[in-house]
Design a protein around this nucleic acid. Structure first.
Lengths: 223, 223, 223, 223
DNA sequence: GATGAATGAGGATTCATTCAT
DNA sequence: TATGAATGAATCCTCATTCAT
């Protein structure tokens, strides 16, 4: 009996801590979304979480750590949702379909976790990626690269990296527009984003099955 | 004596004022580039300009106004450099060439005026475009729309607007990558950016002369 | 069963408590040494001791109490090491020897217990001795006075007190220099410190045997 | 007329700034004296000076800078008061007199500028002299060394340095006691301090005229 | 006893902006 | 115009201490 207490009491306390951390991260997510990462203040996060500033610092050494942890959790959530390869790509899947599905998933994930965008949203000083965003960015990049390597099996590693960078950039740009609109217009932007990516990748996916690629059908386009 | 003062001094004062403004804007450009717009402090701008904070506020009511004016001047400079339509597009010019030239010009302009990127570089809070960037953004958009309307004469206005938004977004994304690299790698990113835009616009430019568009040549792509 | 608990558990608890206290004091000593008393934080002490802040406050009402208890233990340790009178002074011992031995012992004690210096090291606000240091200080003073009273049997009590104050001050000053150096230089400072004290006390030790003191010239002293 | 304005207006503003600086330093001195350097807060200093925290930071980049500037001014004031050599030492002056005079001057200076003591009052962590105190300390040391070199012309440089360190330490220790008392008791401590220094230095001042130094007994000294 | 979460006032410092000169 | 001093709220972060478990 004493033993069970000694084992459970800490657990309960830890549980409380975990809850606080979750609560703080949620609050941080909310604040990051409304004010942006840079302008977000730790006090504001604490206030949003309904705790004192000191409490926040019991769990996170600084603002950056919050962003990093948030990014980490997001990435894990992504892995849990998408599986390791972001999308299991059957070589027989047409490029169009594969890209479309990936974009849809990404966007859905973003809608579920709006901070994702806020964190992904690059550095204040172009070229100076801060550590917080860096990890997230790198992970995303790796995932995209993984996806691409199965989509474009013939590409050279260097090109693959560049292509991944491009895809991420394009996706972020498109996402911004998607999120800025609603309803039919949003859907239209989603289509555009898909088109951009598909058409960008198409010529790189040499041996892949395309959408009825035997004729000049592209004139009608992917729309 | 008093009369001559009243006539000449204003002129001199205006001239001095213009110089001050130019000086301040130059300083602001420099600071925006190094620290980013958000982190830039008015005091830092004044210091960089070699004047006192008070002087800065004699010419600009607040930080935002500086960015706006800077954006305005940039747009004027752009007009002076590019002409009204961003690029006079001869309907006979192949899309590839037209887009390539436009991108090259844009990038060159950016290299001449690095602030441009800093200002263009979106809002801190995704979706909430601040007034400073807004004007710049709108102007850019209009210019791109103008360019597109001659490139894609058959497109509907709504689609044109969306396409312009997309192009601007894609361009910004690409530019970020271009500026983040140097030498051959930078060139490679420039090519990629062009490819993205060309291939995105290609199917929309129905009646345009494309690059040997009569066969399934796209497999080899625009590269 | 309940009885045996009531008899044995308290003992065990007290034992545990003592261990905790010792543990905490050790940790406090370590922290005081590295950061100084003022800058030492109770949280840091608890962390160093491997316990939670709450536990610390179960044994000490506040930071000051830790310092006081630490000082107390130090004084007891000193008594155990040195005996009641700091040094049993045989009236036949030459002053030089007596002082030299006392200084050596003090310094040795300091090297064994570096906190001693940290605690002894005066108040932040000159003239306002805080309670923590006060007790330590008073005890030290009493011990030195005791030592002096056998060294200088003819001195008046008032003078004795003043002399003790001086000696303690001089010792602290010297110790600081001693600890700030190493090797031969440290030894040199030890010699200097001894010289200072010996020569300061010499003229006050009227009837004492001095070192080859062939003329009574110093008896009139510099006073 | 316009010219005189352009020359005088800045001067007036600078004068205001100078006044503020003096005011802030005065406030800092006061706060340092009452709470000690470490515990002194910049906000408290600003409050004491009757200005906002921001104003303080217009003139000093941080707390340390205030202490440094304060120390600098103190050293200059000292130089102005004492002259370059701290005390012009006529080789014929008896050691006793020379030391007595120097101590009197030092103490008088301290009474005029109580911060002096607060700043002189060493580092929180023994052995880790902070920059603020360091400069002051070094200057004082140099001055004492200068004084000693004329008092003890035969000493080796290494010994001189050590002796200077000792003297400063002893002086600080004595001063603390002096300031802790008043009236006759204070005077008594002053005498003791002088005695300590004189008797410490006496054997080192070989060829000097001493007080009724009829036998060369001290030459063998306690060393 | 022990834990560790919680507090909240206070620390240094910054910054957009205003104002007297 | 130009100056630079002045503001004060807001920033991030710390710490002695308390409290529920």
């Amino acid at each position: 009996m004493a033993e069970s207490q000694e084992k459970e009491q800490p657990r309960r306390r830890q549980a409380r801590g975990e809850r606080r951390i979750a609560q703080l991260l949620e609050a941080a997510a909310s604040v990051f979304c409304t004010t942006g990462y840079t302008a977000a203040s730790t006090n504001a996060i604490a206030r949003e979480a309904g705790v004192s500033p000191g409490t926040l610092y019991q769990f996170f050494p600084n603002k950056e750590a919050i962003a990093i942890e948030l990014g980490d959790r997001l990435m894990h959530e992504m892995r849990d949702t998408f599986g390791e390869a972001l999308a299991p790509v059957d070589p027989a899947t047409p490029l169009e379909e594969a890209v479309g599905a990936a974009v849809d998933r990404f966007i859905a994930f973003n809608c579920d976790h709006p901070v994702f965008f806020a964190l992904m949203h690059g550095p204040d000083i172009p070229g100076h990626m801060a550590e917080e965003h860096d990890a997230l960015h790198a992970t995303l990049l790796a995932r995209i690269e993984g996806l691409l390597s199965s989509l474009l099996p013939d590409a050279r590693p260097v090109d693959l990296g560049r292509t991944a960078h491009m895809c991420l950039g394009l996706y972020k740009a498109g996402l911004e527009l998607v999120l800025a609109h609603e309803g039919a217009e949003r859907d239209a932007y989603v289509r555009e984003l898909k088109n951009v990516l598909i058409r960008y990748l198409e010529p790189l996916a040499a041996g892949r099955p395309g959408p009825a690629r035997d004729s000049g059908a592209e004139a009608t386009g992917v729309r």
